[in-house]
Amino acid sequence: MTARVLTAILAVLFVVLAFDAGAAHAQGAVAPVDAKVGPAPDFDPPRSATTAGKTVSKRDSVASPAPGAPTNAAAKRTKGGMVFAFWGFAALTVLGSLFVITRRNLITAVMGMVGTFFALAALYMLLYAHFLAIIQMLVYAGAIMVLFVFVIMILNKPEDEPFALSGRVGKVLAGLATTYLVFRIGSVLIDVPSHVTIAQNAAPAKTAAGDDWGSTAAVGMNLFNDYLFPFEAVSLTLLIAVVGAIAIARPLKDDEPAAEAATTGGH
C-alpha cells in the first residue's frame, strides 16, 4: 500500500511547509511571540528574575512566592528531584516509543508502548494533572494495551519485514522528513515562554471551589460544567465502538452466505 506511505510523506511535507510559512508570519507578528495570553496563572514569578541562564543565587532572589508555595529553600531541595524525574521519564517515553516503531516482535512493541504510557502518566503528574495521570494508566496501559495484547495473541504472527519503505533511499527519506518535522516543531515550541521552570513552581492555585488544581474534584467540576455536552456525547462514540466492534468481529455464522462472489461483479 504505497498510497499510505506517499500520503504520509506528503502530509509531513505539507506541515513542514506550514512551519516555514508560520515562521514567516511570526517575523512580522503584531504581538511578541512570547506574549502571555489568557488568564496567567498567578504563580508565575516576574520574568526578569527568572530568565533561564541566571545563576542560582539570582533565582533565589525571586520575591514572594505564591501563597502556599514552598519556600525557596524547599524549592531548591525538590528541584533536583523534579529535574531528575523529568529527564528519566522523558528518556523512558522516547525509548519506549522507539521500541514500538523498531521491534519486529509485536509483543516487544506492545511492552515498549506500555513503558511509554507509564512514563507519560508520570510526566502528567509532574504537570499537576493527577487525575489524568491515573486515567492514563487505567485507560491506556490498562485497557487499550490489553486489547492490543489480546489481538496479537489471536493473530500470533510476527512481521516478516518490519520496514515498509523498500530500499535504503526510502528509509532515509522518511527518516529525514521525520527529523525535519521534529526540528521545525521544536523550533516553534522552544520559544514558548519557559522561564517559569516547573521545578521552581509549587502547586498551582486552588480552584474557586477550593479544590487542588488537577485533582479529581477540580477536573470533575470542569467536566460536568463546561464540558457537560462533550462528556455526554462521547458516550455515543463509545456506543458506536462497542456495537460496531462486535458487529465486525463476531464469528461468521455458517448460514451466512459468502459474499465474495457478489463483490467480484463488474470487474
Binding site: F14, V15, A18, F19, A21, G22, A23, H25, A26, A29, V30, A31, V33, D34, A35, V37, I185, V188, L189, D191, V192
Partner: peptide, 14 residues
C-alpha cells in the same frame, strides 16, 4: 490578536 502567532499558524496548518 494577542495569541502566540507562530504556534497558532502551525496549529491551524495541521
Amino acid at each position: 490578536a494577542s495569541g502566540n502567532l507562530a504556534l497558532l499558524t502551525v496549529g491551524t496548518f495541521m
